[in-house]
Structure formats: C-alpha cells, structure tokens
C-alpha cells in the first residue's frame, strides 16, 4: 500500500474516553468473532486496525485481515482495502498500479452491495469517463447510496447556478440529513446559514433542526454552533445552562477540538470560589478562561477583575493583560489601576509590561503623553536585547526628536577596504 493513502488518516490520539471505551469494546468483540472464524468479524477488526479505532493503528495487519475477508466476499473489507490502496496522487507508475488495485477492490465491494464502494468507483471514473460516473451515481443513489446522492446534489448545485437547481440540490441535502447523513447536514446547514445572513433573520427553526440532526449524526462543529446559540439565549450561571451544556458535551464527544469549552464551563465555579478565597493562581486561571477566544465565556469585563487580583497576588504574567483590560474600562480609577499593574509587571521582569506601558506613555495612548517616562522604558528593553524595540526606537527617531538614538551594535559593520576591492573585482569580472 502507499506510504500515504488518500483515505487513511492518522488515528486521533485525543479522542474522548467515552468514545475510546466504545471502540475498544467493539474491537474486542470483533477479535472474538474473527478468532471463531467469522469473516465479518475479521473485516470489522481489519477496519479497526486501518483507522486505529480501539486498537493501535497498524496498516500491514489491516491489509492482511481485509484481504482475507474481501476474498471471503465481505464487501466492507473490500471497501477498506480500497481505502488503504488509494494513493493521494497517481503520477508515478507505482501510484497508477496502486490506483488500479484500489479500483478493483472498490469494484468488488460495489458488486457485493457496499454502496460507498460504488461511489468510490464513480470517483475514480470522474477523471476518465464522466458519463459512466454519472450513471453509476444515479444507480447507486436510487439504491440508497447516500454518498452518491450527496455527490449528485453537489454536482447539481455547482454545475447549475439557477435558483431551481440550487433549491433542488438543497432538498436532496435536507432529505439525506434527515436520514442521518452527517455531511449533508453540514452542506445544508451551511446553505441555510448563508440564506439567513442574507435575510438577517434570527436563527431559523429549520437551521436549528438541521444542526441538531447533524450533531446527532456525529458532527462536532454543528453541535458547537448550535450550543453557542443556545448558550447565548440562556440565562443564569453557565454551568446551569443544561441544554447548551449537553450540546457542548456532544460536540466534544464528536470532535476533541471542542472539548476545552466543556472543561472550561465545568471548571469555572471552582475557580470563582478559589479566586474569591484569595488564591491568585485560580484568579489567573479564571481570567484566562474569560479570555479564551471563541469561548462562550469570553468576556473582557469578566476577565478584568480576576486578572487584576492575579497580578496583585503575585502572578506577574497576569499584569500586562490586567492592565490592558483595565484600560478598556470606563471607570474613573481605571487608568490608575492600569498604571499600577504595568509597573508591577515591569518591575517583576515582564518585558511586555515595560514595553506596552512605555509605548502608551510615548504615544499618549490611555495615559497623558509623557515621553520623559516612556522612552527610558523602551530604551532599557532595547538595551536588554529586544532588537525589535531598538528598531522601533530607530524608526521613532525619524519623526520624534525626543526619541533616544539606540546605541550602534555590530549588525551592519562597514566593509574593510580589501572586501570592497574584492567585491568591485567580482562586479568588473
């Protein structure tokens, strides 16, 4: 098989424990069935080794198991074998031979009634014989082959931009989604979202339904998107918005990328308690939780107080952020707090605090302009090795006579006479 198959990805190392347990149990059952001589069990076990579901991902073993099961007329095994053989590109002779092998495995799977294998055969035909590909797709779709129907709908919506074709394609996606096809839910939800953006309507019940169906069909993003909407409509403490929480949980089960949100919502009450009890580390963690971009908890107003407490409690990393957040606050003493926190950070060795404060003083941004105080802060950052700040000072000297000229370093030494002569000689030559 090729080193990099088009359809075999690396197993996800961060899948949720619940899913891992499910997959491990399934693989154990398949193993038992395979040991008892059931080729369906060996096919399922081969597929598990192909993707690393409940077992370590191991393609040579997958190949052995799938080939035997495919020879014993297990269509899903032929499909898996085709997935393993399908190369990412087919330029070299070797790749073309692989493509051929993949094609015959898919073909055998298709003949054995695996409709997804038929779609793969059609996909290989796409490049050479579009008419045959279309015909095979129509036939496969009529038999209930979801992937082929989906692809036909895709083609319909791309080849023909008329409103009628678009509506027709979306009707197919909606039907497929209602019958549990995740990708059709994704396609249809995307279209409904675009329609909605055009109408500037609130989230339509139809979009919610499609998102909910796609979420149940295993899509992480659709769960997440719906969860964000439900969360925003909810009231009360985040950890008590049960409907949204259930959706965030589901998003995490489907795709591990979304798990941090669930963790954050569940961690929040304890951190609030800890911060109120004076644990600076908890205040910092709480502030970070409110700062996480894209999180439903993201709120500069909520992050402000805990970040400030963290800085005052000795978490120096918190000071720059606390100061920046304070400057967004309209309270009359906000600037004074920001200044205090910048100074704490800067004195504690956070170069970022000195630089941010220095720039604000020099530019009169957030504080009254005070180059006499600001420039020394920037100059000492430059002197302690921040070459980007030296460059910044150099730029500032062009327009601001008060800016200190940074001390020359050895970045651009003038050429010695011999080197100059040598260069001239080469140019002449």
């Amino acid at each position: 098989f090729p080193t990099s198959s088009a359809l075999v990805e690396r197993a996800d190392p961060d899948e949720s424990p619940a899913r891992r347990e499910r997959e491990e149990a399934a693989a154990r059952a398949d193993r038992t069935a395979c040991d008892e001589g059931k080729s369906s069990g060996c096919a399922a076990l081969g597929l598990a080794y192909l993707t690393g579901a409940g077992v370590p991902q191991n393609r040579p073993l997958a190949e052995v198991l799938l080939r035997e099961a495919c020879d014993a007329d297990e269509g899903t095994a032929c499909m898996g074998l085709g997935q393993l053989y399908l190369p990412r590109v087919a330029f070299s002779e070797e790749d073309k031979a692989m493509l051929e092998q993949a094609g015959s495995a898919f073909d055998r799977g298709c003949r054995l009634g695996v409709l997804d294998a038929c779609e793969r055969v059609a996909a290989i035909l796409d490049g050479t014989d579009e008419v045959a590909a279309d015909a095979l797709r129509r036939d496969t779709c009529a038999k209930g082959g979801t992937a082929s129907c989906r692809r036909l709908a895709d083609d319909l919506s791309m080849r023909d931009e008329s409103a009628a074709a678009q509506t027709e394609a979306q009707r197919v996606f909606a039907r497929l989604c209602r019958s549990g096809d995740r990708e059709s839910c994704v396609s249809h939800a995307r279209w409904l979202t675009q329609q909605q953006e055009r109408d500037e309507d609130s989230r339509s019940p139809e979009l919610r339904e499609i998102q909910s169906l796609g979420c149940r069909a295993g899509d992480g993003y659709l769960c997440h998107d719906l969860a964000m909407a439900v969360f925003a409509e909810g009231s009360g403490p985040p950890e008590q918005r049960v409907e949204a929480l259930a959706l965030f949980d589901r998003a995490c089960d489907n795709e591990s990328d979304f798990c941090s949100i669930r963790t954050a919502i569940h961690a929040r009450p304890l951190l609030v308690q800890g911060c109120e009890a004076g644990r600076a580390q908890d205040c910092y963690a709480l502030g970070e939780l409110y700062q996480a971009p894209g999180s439903p908890l993201e709120s500069a107003a909520d992050a402000r107080a805990p970040m400030g407490k963290a800085c005052e409690g000795g978490i120096i990393e918190a000071c720059t952020i606390a100061a920046e957040l304070a400057l967004q606050d309209s309270a009359p003493d906000a600037a004074a707090r920001a200044e205090r926190w910048y100074r704490t950070g800067c004195a504690g060795g956070q170069a970022g605090s000195c630089i941010a404060f220095g720039r604000r003083l020099v530019d009169g941004d957030g504080f009254p302009r005070d180059p006499g105080q600001g420039y020394p802060l920037l100059a000492s950052a430059c002197a302690s090795g921040r070459t980007d700040i030296c460059d910044e000072l150099e730029t500032r000297t062009a327009t601001d006579p008060e800016a200190p000229v940074p001390v020359a370093d050895n970045s651009y030494l003038p050429d010695d006479p011999e080197a100059l002569e040598e260069r001239q000689r080469r140019i002449n030559e």
Binding site: P13, P56, Q57, N58, P60, L61, V64
Partner: peptide, 18 residues
C-alpha cells in the same frame, strides 16, 4: 509519526504512520 507493533497469530506487524 506514530509507530506501532502488533503481534497477531504469531506474526509481528510493524507500522509507522506520519
């Protein structure tokens, strides 16, 4: 890259996937 080695029916199967 991830490497795995699995023994199945007396044969060792090794794989590295990147």
């Amino acid at each position: 890259c991830t490497s795995t080695a699995v023994t199945f029916r007396g044969t060792l199967y090794e794989d590295t996937i990147c």
